[in-house]
C-alpha cells in the first residue's frame, strides 16, 4: 500500500559542485592534452621555438587582465573537478566516516588554492 502523506524532500547543494566539476572536466579533457603536447613534447623536441615560452613572455601574459583570468580558470576549475572526484571516490571506496570533514577538506582545499592563485595573480600586477 502506498502511503498517502506527502514526504518531505531535502534539496541537495550538489549542483554548485557538479557545475564546477563539469566545467573543470571540460577544461581538463580539452585543454590539458594540448598543453602537455606543447610544453611536454613540441617544445622539448624543438618543433616550437622555446623562446615563445620564455619567462618574460609568460610573465607578460600572466600580468595582462585576460591572461590572469585564463591562468586562474585553468588552475582553479580542474582543481575543483579533481577534488570533487576524490570526494566521491572516497564514498565509492566505502570510507563512511567523517563525510562532512571529507567535504570540508576536499572543497576547502580547492577553495583555498583558488583564492591563493587569485591573490598571487593580483599582486603580480
Amino acid at each position: 500500500m502506498s502511503n498517502t502523506t506527502e514526504k518531505t524532500y531535502t534539496r541537495s547543494h550538489e549542483p554548485i559542485f557538479w557545475g564546477l566539476f563539469g566545467a573543470g572536466g571540460m577544461l581538463t579533457a580539452f585543454l590539458t592534452p594540448v598543453m602537455i603536447l606543447i610544453t611536454g613534447i613540441l617544445i622539448p623536441l624543438g618543433l616550437i621555438d622555446s623562446k615563445h615560452l620564455s619567462y618574460e613572455k609568460v610573465h607578460l601574459f600572466a600580468t595582462s587582465w585576460y591572461g590572469a583570468a585564463i591562468v586562474l580558470v585553468l588552475v582553479a576549475l580542474p582543481l575543483w573537478h579533481t577534488l570533487h572526484r576524490i570526494y566521491h571516490a572516497l564514498h565509492d571506496l566505502g570510507i563512511k566516516r567523517g563525510r562532512d570533514l571529507q567535504q570540508v577538506f576536499c572543497y576547502g582545499f580547492a577553495f583555498a588554492v583558488s583564492i591563493f592563485v587569485f591573490t598571487l595573480l593580483l599582486q603580480m600586477f
Partner: peptide
C-alpha cells in the same frame, strides 16, 4: 523535481 533535487535523487549518481 523535489524528488530529483535530493541527494537520494539524481545526486546519488556518479
Amino acid at each position: 523535481m523535489k524528488i530529483v533535487n535530493q541527494e537520494e535523487g539524481v545526486w546519488g549518481c556518479t
